[in-house]
Design a protein around this nucleic acid. Structure first.
Lengths: 332, 332
DNA sequence: CTGAAAGCGCTTACAG
DNA sequence: CTGAAAGCGCTTACAG
């Protein structure tokens, strides 16, 4: 910067002003600075900027499982609006471990980022105190009872109820759901959807299993369900890895989808349309959720105030494919 | 830090030394500093550290498609050894666009990261000049002719040849491969594998299509291949999204895997084992590649010198499942 | 083993 | 519209 100032024949502050477009600079001085910067090959040192201004031009994205394609899609969707605003995304993974999440958040806080997009771990200890460290916080997908910040979620209860009802409508009398961890808001809300759909049909029944939300955990849970409860003829998944685990367990048990077991996944994935039978699933508008999260962070970081803390709900949509059929009993 | 120094009754440098474990500090002073730090709730400001030491404790991971699960797995695998070493991972996506890659690298460089793990975009302009900006660079999966840095790759040619040979051995006379972009090292090496396998069988033939390496591009390419060349009875995929696109195109054409068309994917994914027919694929040891990349960066960042620039090759392995069968002709 | 001084690269008041 | 001064939080020599 010193070199640029010298080459342009101005002071360092003028260089700063010209390059950042803040404050008054004469058109001529600006041009001289820009030329000099190009000449010298100057690129600003973000660290220096951040130290002085007590803000880094980055936004932390802390997720509970980077192996879940939901979060990969979210990352991509968030990144675009933020990049346009000159912000980069630091992705941190916490494997749904509140301890690790806390450590990752401390690390992130030490960068003084412009914002935080968080999908909290089960049992997260993220609190109002920590919110203050981050200035601009948006919760995506999962919410937290004690933290009053903007949120972006799917209409979990309604969408899951619709999926369950699709199975009941096809004739299934006993539907199982392999959910995520018991403490997650998403598990809670989707379970409520299942209860609602079940309650609306007096002759129907449902059973629930909690899991880590991974393929392996879902496979084990589904195997157990199938072996212990022969009345189950349909299974609802919780996320992409869980849907995968359910399908593997059904295969392992020597059963066929949908002839023996119907399956509906929650959150769509490209492969679900590519395979036989194509998997019916509730498609979440992940790209829109990410875009909204990015936009919110940008607006907050330029100081926009909201009359009410925004709590955005984007609707999921049931995509009917081939993994749902009437149950065996009715076929015989 | 000032507060900690005051509370401990020492100078700021002693605090720095005690907390970082560098230089001499008396056991008593160290204890007083540690207690004071805990008392005050001190957490170091990474920005301040980075500015002074001209290094941030972060490693950039720049990938060409975060939507490709290969890179999500790579991120997770790299993150673990780096976190142990006190380094965090900044993931940047460039959508295989050399322009954007260049911008992302400039951004990253301005943080003075401890290292860079790069899977270069097709037509990347990453050069020796840029390598110098990053101190420690490792190339993963894709290599670059003019850049002499450590690399970690799969045995592309051999693994792809083995996959092709699996199809020839099953009786296929004309095998198609939907590859990635023409300029990518991975495309080049895998194509060489296909040629080698084809050349070894005088009566067999192969055809190649380049693509963007996305599901959509592969779908289009495969549809075209299938429509224009009825001799094709088997298709090799390039990566997980391409395999997905191939399967969709086969479906769209009203054909069945493996009865009408055999398919082998490159890079395994959980869903490939979950579906009917389960997809035969070359499994890449992504986790090992990530771990090796992380380890290399850590070793380089503590100043370890190598006699030779390491070029690590980790073998892929053909996982036989159900998507390969003899071609139609032989069945009739 | 410890502290006083300097400075990393930048931007924020402030004075002109 | 522009510049001299100060300082963000830390660590690197250096002197004791």
């Amino acid at each position: 910067m010193h070199d640029v100032a010298k080459a342009a024949g101005v002071s360092a502050q003028t260089v700063s002003r010209a390059l950042n477009g803040r404050g008054y600079v004469s058109a001529e001085a600006r041009k001289r600075v820009l030329d000099a910067a190009a000449q010298v090959g100057y690129s600003p040192n973000v660290i220096g900027q951040s130290l002085r201004s007590a803000r880094s031009p980055m936004v932390g994205l802390v997720v509970s499982d980077i192996g879940n394609p939901f979060y990969a899609r979210l990352h991509r969707a968030i990144e675009t609006p933020l990049r346009t605003a000159g912000l980069s995304v630091l992705l941190l993974n916490c494997d749904d471990d509140p301890e690790l999440e806390s450590a990752q958040l401390d690390l992130l806080a030490s960068y003084r980022p412009a914002g935080l997009v968080l999908s909290p771990a089960t049992g997260s200890r993220f609190s109002a105190r920590q919110v203050a460290l981050f200035e601009n916080v948006v919760l995506v997908s999962r919410t937290l009872p004690d933290v009053d910040v903007p949120t972006i979620v799917t209409n979990e209860t309604e969408a899951f109820a619709a999926a369950a009802d699709e199975l009941f409508a096809a004739g299934h009398r006993r539907v199982a759901a392999v959910l995520g961890p018991e403490g997650a808001s998403t598990t809670h809300l989707r379970e409520a959807g299942l209860q609602r759909a079940t309650a609306a049909r007096p002759t129907r029944d449902s059973v629930v299993r909690y899991s880590e939300g991974t393929s392996l955990a879902a496979r084990t849970a589904t195997a157990d369900l199938l072996a212990s409860d022969p009345g189950i003829t349909a299974v609802l998944g919780f996320n992409v890895p869980v849907t995968e685990g359910i399908l593997i367990a059904v295969r392992d048990a020597g059963l066929r989808v949908p002839q023996d077991i119907s399956v509906i996944g929650f959150t769509d994935a490209g492969w679900m349309a590519a395979v036989h039978p194509a998997v019916t699933a509730v498609a979440q508008p992940v790209e829109e959720m990410g875009r909204l999260a990015g936009d919110l962070i940008v607006r907050m970081s330029v100081g926009e105030q909201f009359d009410h803390v925004p709590h955005l709900v984007v609707p999921g949509e049931l995509v009917r494919r081939e993994s749902v059929a009437p149950p065996r009993e009715e076929r015989r």
